[in-house]
Amino acid sequence: MPLSRQESERYSRQLIVPGIGLRGQAKLKNASVLVAGAGGLGGVVLAYLAAAGVGRLGFADPGLLELSNLNRQIFYKTRDLGRAKVRLLASFLKDLNPRVRLEPLRLKLDSENLAPLLKKYGLVADCTDNFEARFELNKACVRAGRTLVHGAVYGFEGQLAVIAPRGGPCLKCVFPHMPPRLKGYTPAPGPAPGAIGAMQAAEVIKIICGLPHLRGRLVIYDFAHGAAHSVRLKRRRACGVCGKRDEG
């Protein structure tokens, strides 16, 4: 399908990226992505995916905008405190790129609603803010055969991974056990989720366009010291999530 003149101009700077081009742009237009969480990571991922022309974007978050979100969730406005975040984000994304189909979901993702939802999307970005949701999403993606682009932050540190569904390794292979619950809030300087969210969006775009990506690797970004550490993920044979399927 050829691009309209408007589209050719809108996407002109990415059409000249080796590996994207017209073919990649068409793949982006035909793609659908579910973004779990509309916080510091989710908003950034969505902004870049909408801007890049991903055809259909679903995004789920039950929350209302709070004042303490605004040090990092820069796509919201102070005057909108107390309003549903997915609605606010939908309006922001529509202004950014009216051609993208937006599916805001004001709900908390769980094992029940994830299974039917994942059928409707080709790819998932994990932008949630708690371990329970992250491991639920990992399990659902393994079951549904969806690639999961994982991003998470703690202070000036971030983790990024691409979890491919068939054959693992999955998130639970890397992190088989949850750490003890921390007291208080997770430290979150704005640029850390901004950077990791942008990297998640880059992985999603590369996966859709068929470019080399982080599959099977976890990268730890240390913004405090300008360092990165890349780990090759290994499948745990005893993994309760991705292990049993193959053996059974």
Binding site: D129, F131, A152, V153, Y154, E157, Q159, P179
Partner: peptide, 10 residues
Amino acid sequence: LHVFPPVSGG
């Protein structure tokens, strides 16, 4: 040697 826990912030 690297030692790290999972993180969950988003």
